[in-house]
Design a protein around this nucleic acid. Structure first.
Length: 320
DNA sequence: AACATTAGCAACCGCACTCCA
DNA sequence: TTGGAGTGCGGTTGCTAATGT
């Protein structure tokens, strides 16, 4: 026995809404609200529509402050970054974009944004397969000795004065794929793979700034213990924005690509990547870093898929 | 000008979840 | 604890307009 239908399918109108229907529904809800029951609403309003259809029409079209039309670059960035981190959870993404509906964003992604990404990947400036290389830290070292643009490459591996470092690290490669640049903001070194693929969780993180951001300074750093007794662990896990908060919101960086082109990287574009960082390194690894004498951590646990040579760039993007 | 194809978007469908009796 | 009703969500469909041949 199947599930009971939500309404009498034979007696409901389907298809596009007429202006009259819109007006009826809008007027009723503005006057009386939904009454907490969409199923019963059509009858009250006097519409031969399914309750679900009414709900959808109201949420996606009739309710106040709905924004229609072109998406801004900033909205693009937010969508791409969130999609990269949480996938196709459109309602959550929509919650970050006032006036946009999940349906709107879903349609926009499926019809335009995804293609935009694919164009980038397939363009000469996009992802290109490169010979296998070593870890990000070694790549950074490699980049600092290369001819690629680099304003302050030496500081990435320096623990003596991390706070003095600010600026572009340089262009370099990640295993198997070309990346564009690393840049810093507030002492965090972000390793970015392509302007639109900045969400890829390739990071090199300065130990001191990481400690400060995640656990605060001084004695609180003692949560490097791995016995789970860290008082800040819960706070850390709940604080999904710690990285965002640590990023200079107005940070803009012109980055020179290996082919000579330049792009602008904006710190805002990294919103949401903090979870990817956690996913990528894992809390234990981050703790170990803080308690260790090393200065940087590099991607490892997350690399299975990202660096899988059998996966195409498209698969990798779609995966995210 | 006519037809075919593609793109964009509104709306539908069905599943999963929550709430409550 | 259970099961039904209502709701929310993501995937998909289908219509229309735009574009190409």
């Amino acid at each position: 026995m199947g599930r009971a239908p939500c309404c009498d399918k034979t007696n409901v109108k389907k298809g596009p809404w007429s202006p009259e229907e819109d007006a009826k529904l809008k007027e009723y809800i503005e006057k009386y609200g939904t009454g907490g029951n969409w199923i019963a609403l059509p009858q009250k309003v006097g519409l031969k529509r399914c309750g679900k259809s009414c709900r959808l029409r109201w949420l996606n079209y009739l309710r106040p402050n709905i924004k229609h039309g072109e998406f801004s670059d900033e909205e693009d960035r937010i969508i791409i970054n969130l999609f990269a981190n949480i996938g196709s959870r459109w309602s959550i993404i929509a919650a970050q974009l006032p006036g946009r509906t999940d349906n709107d964003i879903k349609n926009y992604w499926n019809t335009k944004l995804k293609k935009k990404l694919m164009n980038i990947i397939n363009s000469p400036q996009g992802l290109r397969k490169l010979p296998q290389t070593a870890s990000i830290s070694s790549l950074l070292q490699h980049s600092s000795s290369s001819s690629l643009s680099s304003s302050s490459s030496s500081s990435t591996s320096s623990s003596s004065s991390p706070s003095s470092f600010c600026g572009q690290v340089g262009s370099f490669t990640t295993p198997g794929y070309e990346t564009i640049s690393a840049f810093s903001s507030n002492n965090i070194v972000h390793v970015i793979q392509e302007s639109y693929l900045g969400q890829m969780p390739y990071y090199q993180v300065n130990k001191d700034s990481l400690q400060q951001l995640m656990f605060g300074t001084g004695d609180q750093a003692s949560c490097s213990s791995s016995d789970g007794s860290c008082n800040n662990e819960q706070a850390l896990l709940q604080n999904n924005n710690f990285f965002h908060n640590g990023v200079d919101q107005n940070h803009h960086q012109n980055v020179m690509l290996s082919n000579g082109d330049t792009i602008n990287v904006n710190g805002k574009g990294l919103w949401g990547s903090e979870q990817a960082l956690l996913d990528c390194f894992g809390l234990e690894e981050i703790k170990q870093l803080i308690s260790s004498n090393t200065n940087t951590i590099t991607t490892s646990s997350c690399s299975n898929f990202l660096f899988d040579e059998n996966k195409t760039a498209e698969e990798r993007v779609l995966y995210y």
